[in-house]
């Protein structure tokens, strides 16, 4: 019973971990490189949640100082994730550029077909 209450108090982490698992599964199981990149970005969003969640205080408000409020959520994770999102899309674009070049060189973006072509050469 105590474990159940424990689990209920951490349900947000469980959802986060589910997203993480979905991303991880896509990255490992799918051969299509665009799909892999999307899986990576899903994994990334789960990490965003993992950072933001501990900063939340129930009953708190957004960290913009105003005399009307006294309890604020922690601003530090917000800052870290804010920059991480923009850096994430920049690296996603870099990965997609690589995928485009691979497609021009091999004519495919499927991992297995690329391995096959490499073996033929």
């Amino acid at each position: 019973m105590a474990t159940l209450i424990d689990l209920a108090q951490h349900y947000n982490y469980i959802v986060t971990i589910f997203l993480m698992m979905a991303g991880l599964y896509i990255v490992i199981a799918r051969g299509n490189m665009v799909k892999k990149l999307i899986g990576l970005s899903i994994f990334q969003t789960s990490v965003y949640l993992l950072y933001i969640e501990p900063g939340k205080i129930i009953g708190g408000t957004a960290p913009i100082i105003d005399p009307a409020f006294s309890v604020y959520s922690n601003p530090l994770p917000h800052v870290l994730i804010l920059t991480a999102i923009v850096v994430g899309v920049a690296t996603l674009a870099l990965g997609l550029a690589l995928v485009v070049r691979i497609n021009e060189a091999y004519g495919t973006v499927e991992e297995e077909e690329i391995v096959e072509k490499d073996r033929d050469v």
Binding site: V86, V89, A90, A93, L96, A97, V100
Partner: peptide, 16 residues
């Protein structure tokens, strides 16, 4: 920087 980078990335993909 962000505006320039995002626009440049977009141009690069479109021109390709």
């Amino acid at each position: 920087t962000v505006a320039g980078t995002m626009t440049a990335i977009f141009y690069a993909f479109v021109e390709r």
